[in-house]
Design a binder for these strands. Sequence first.
RNA 1: GCCGGGAUAGCUCAGUGGUAGAGCAGCUGAUUCGUAAUCAGCAGGCCGUGGGUUCAAAUCCCAUUCCCGGCUCCA
Length: 646
Amino acid sequence: MLLEIEGLQDKIEVEEGALLGSLLAYFPKKRAKEIVAFSWENKVYDLCREVPKECKKLIPVFLNEPLGLKILRHSAAHIMAEAVKKLFPSAKVTIGPDIENGFYYDFDYERPFTPEDLEKIEQEMARSVAANHPFVREELSKEEAKKLFLKLNETYKLEIIDELGEETVSIYRHGDFVDLCRGPHLPSTGYLKAFKLTSVAGAYWRGDENKPMLQRIYGTAFASEKDLKKYLAQLEEAKKRDHRKLGAQLDLFSFSEEAGPGMPIFHPKGALLRAILEDFEIKEHLRRGYEVVRGPRLLRQELWKRSGHYDNYRENMYFTEIDGQVYGLKPMNCLSHMLIYKSKLRSYRDLPLRFFELGTVNRHEKSGVLHGLLRVRQFTQDDAHILCRPDQLQEEIVGVLNFVRDVMKLFGFEYELEISTRPEKSIGSDEDWDRATTALTQALESLELKYDICPGEGAFYGPKIDVKLKDALGRKWQCSTIQCDFTLPERFDLTYIGEDGEKHRPVMLHRVILGAIERFLGVLIEHYAGAFPTWLAPVQARILTITDAQNEYVENCYKVLRQAGLRVEKDLRNEKLGYKVREAQLEKIPYVLVAGEKEVEAGGLNVRLRGGKNMGLKSLEEIVDIIYQDMDEPFKQGGMSYRYLY
RNA sequence: GCCGGGAUAGCUCAGUGGUAGAGCAGCUGAUUCGUAAUCAGCAGGCCGUGGGUUCAAAUCCCAUUCCCGGCUCCA
């Protein structure tokens, strides 16, 4: 058969049944060493397999490209499992996939693995790599495979085999190790040149907290030692962006053991940063046709029963008793918004109604999930509930999606959209869930937005579209969310009078744009690495003196700039200029304004930008102008405008 | 909530059973200096908390709180 191979000029003649590995001969030696598999029609084949029948064109998979790295990491997981079985024969293997930037393997073992165990495992892996065992693929019937793994007492594999749809399954061997696996794998263990085991952690079998806890070992592997080192260095860099670290360094917020876990405390600069964000939000919401409202934080238990929160969300709620009545501390803001709607008779002409609240909520998050500002027990949502007629629903969803788009663009965030469908624990009819899901999907489609589907991940009252942002370490956090709800209007018997004079039921959207201010701030700190754009920076400029001869002059400049609405500080300390510049730089203040003899004489200040660039001497009026323009810059696209001034 | 690791001065960390240490920050003094660290002195500690073992505990054991990395769950 005549075969085309990407990267080779001429087609080559191959005998039926030839092994893919034999094709390496057609590549230059150095290049051939980097080929770990071939792909054809989106399927990847190991080099130890035969050239697939009917195949016309093959694409080589190189070790250092994403697909090659997946294979490398998956094989690294197998090699790790081999090492673990050798060192701890009673450990049972379960699953071991490649993941973003690495791999893991879950083992069932009588005790947790220790960091010392990891070192031993790494050494054992190195031995396997040195031995350069070939990976060998075999296909077996399910029955044969079950016999094999029963003999090995690998009970988890038996469970997996039972769930596989196909009649034949594949196994991979290398050295003495055998694993049930779809493949593909490296040609041999010797290809694994650069790897490192990074951590151990407990993980439930099948991700189910009712099933046994396994021992998960994480590792990473790269095509070369250089790539591995680069990755580890990147990780170190990313840790410097950690909002928990920057939050303390920049004196934005803290947590206190005395105050309690998950209860962030905002210091002056952090609180100002929040205030700016919140002020921007209120103004932008008013501009977009929302009305600002405010509800109580404690509401009677009966109301939570009526909404369904008591039955579906109780374990996350805090309750307290006041004068013999039980009250629930709100975990969501919808209830009082429902009551506002109900406070008077509504006409179809009034809709849509958009109630916006910077609503502070409390949720009892499990202790192990708390994480800096990104996961706390008290937070403020930029929450709104849109009540509209069914025919307005899609337009409203589109409006929210556009709002999200504009805001994310303002901050320069890349984001992923996910649509989540009905979970097991939920209220409402299937019909309503379908209508709601369709409305969300159609809005996404009409804007031609890409999205993933997450089955069963919806809120208990309705399906949702989530927007996910990434933190410094690439972990995803849900920020914006748009949730469709047919149920609460029903439960609270919300109505409006239609054109026909009859009562009709409005539809409700729950939505947040930033999500939780705390979480958004956390992601934002990492996104900017603490160097906030000037419109957000709690301190926009600091004036430095060179000697105390300038003190009086600087006091005056300070007054003038504050008067102009800028967030300015002054540093009159008896320190060398370099020292003061360094501090301002470490605090990531956008503008450093220096006053020396020359500046006093000229009646201006020398302007140094955060990056180190010097703009030279400018008058105070020019400085105000420069900073204002800088504040406005991010708003220019998207047609928004905003300034926070004293 | 579950599994593992950790907690020493405001911060970063050293200290393997025998008198708690360093750098930075702070305070005081000197220095008056041009774009990322001037010098000197001083002060700073219930070694997370509670129990235990021991002649003696930051150090060993138990419990507990909080933090970190995962799992599950979520804005």
